[in-house]
Write a protein that binds this DNA or RNA. Structure first.
Lengths: 209, 209
DNA sequence: AGCGCTACTGACAGAACTGTCAACAGCATC
DNA sequence: GATGCTGTTGACAGTTCTGTCAGTAGCGCT
């Protein structure tokens, strides 16, 4: 068929690290689009421009490749969540923070990747999201705000945690589901704005009982 | 090998409908656990106790089988959402309704199945959830409540829709993610109770601006 | 230039999977 | 009991995939 004889293409020799990274990139894209069972050594190799034994050389086996993909993807997900916290968020910036989390989910199809990995049993479930630093940051800001206003009962950390969890879970599945929706049947920006308003109100006022 | 020679087992002849249903059951379980690419004709056939050409006889091809699985699964998901609406929910029953939706997600791993199908590009995205009847029901009840209390601005239908969407999305991914979590690191019942309280408050009071 | 390390490759083996086909065998009907 | 329909099957073909292996070749180092 249209197969280019490899002997014509001069052999490229990368450092092991470069080669591993390039292979992981290709494999991660396939995992995101088709799930773990859709990751084929030959396809990965072709995408990178190497022969499939090269992939085995670097990762030992298909299993090893999938493990490496999962490990790297989950690590960057955690790091990404942390990167949002560089500056402590003001509660008025709820919308900004929310958009940042949403962008984090969408970027590179991370929500899809995360769901694929989780469904395949790779991630650490809810804990794997690494929410704690985010929760701590929000909760600290929240506590300061309530103290400044002289309100009595501070909201519990669990309340802040659940608020963060709710937001994350919703944005996660929204990011994964929205692509398939007929165009603009749901206005994602409007939903984001609405959710930010809801969160803003709840974070400031808490649950009345 | 421990392979039982099939000739010893007397051949069972089901009606076409029964056979199709049994095959779909097995295939759906595999799709839920491993995704579409993990559905193998031979495995499906073995699970049902038939030879793999039988599966092809009933569904034409592997593609045909997957399409049928998707169609049936998505249909029951929609029907299931409707079944919660037999009696119009009182807003005080938010918790009950929420638990019903959550149970709907968990039962038979429907949340997992739905996510697998959506990630594979089968479902209709957000619209495929069939939320509209649920939203209409909740919104009608809500409007009656607000009228009875003599409040001026009724909340928009979009507000009710977003509220429902938020809940559904969160419960969906929670159901899929929670299995993997180290035991009881997140208390799902507590989260459900918290979310019900939040929803109750929002549905009754709306967003202040 | 020569050498060593190792990234990289083609060819092959073995297994698994989808799909085809002719034939078998329940079961209802006559 | 014979017949027809069709659910069901074993055997086979063709493709594709993972993994092995011996050998090739790029690149840094002396």
């Amino acid at each position: 068929m249209t197969r280019t004889p490899r002997s014509v293409v001069p052999r490229r020799r990368r450092t092991a690290e470069e080669a591993r990274a390039a292979i992981l990139d290709a494999a991660e894209a396939m995992l995101r689009d088709e799930g773990p069972a859709g990751v084929r050594l030959q396809d990965v190799a072709r995408a990178v421009g190497v022969a499939h034994p090269t992939v085995l050389h670097h990762f030992g086996s298909r299993e090893g490749l999938l493990d490496a993909v999962a490990e790297r993807a989950l690590a960057t997900l955690r790091l990404g969540a942390l990167s949002n916290l560089k500056s402590e968020p003001a509660l008025d910036d709820v919308r900004v923070l929310l958009e940042a989390v949403a962008a984090q989910m969408d970027g590179g199809g991370r929500a899809r990747t995360l769901l694929q990995l989780t469904l395949a049993g790779y991630g650490g479930g809810i804990e794997g999201l690494g929410l704690d630093p985010l929760v701590d940051s929000v909760h600290a800001t929240r506590g300061r705000l309530w103290a400044a206003r002289g309100r009595r009962k501070k909201p519990s950390r669990e309340d802040t945690y659940f608020t963060t969890l709710l937001t994350t879970l919703a944005l996660l599945s929204l990011s994964a589901l929205k692509e398939r929706s007929k165009k603009a049947a749901v206005s994602v920006p409007r939903f984001h704005a609405w959710l930010a308003a809801l969160l803003h109100q709840h974070l400031q006022q808490g649950l009345e009982r």
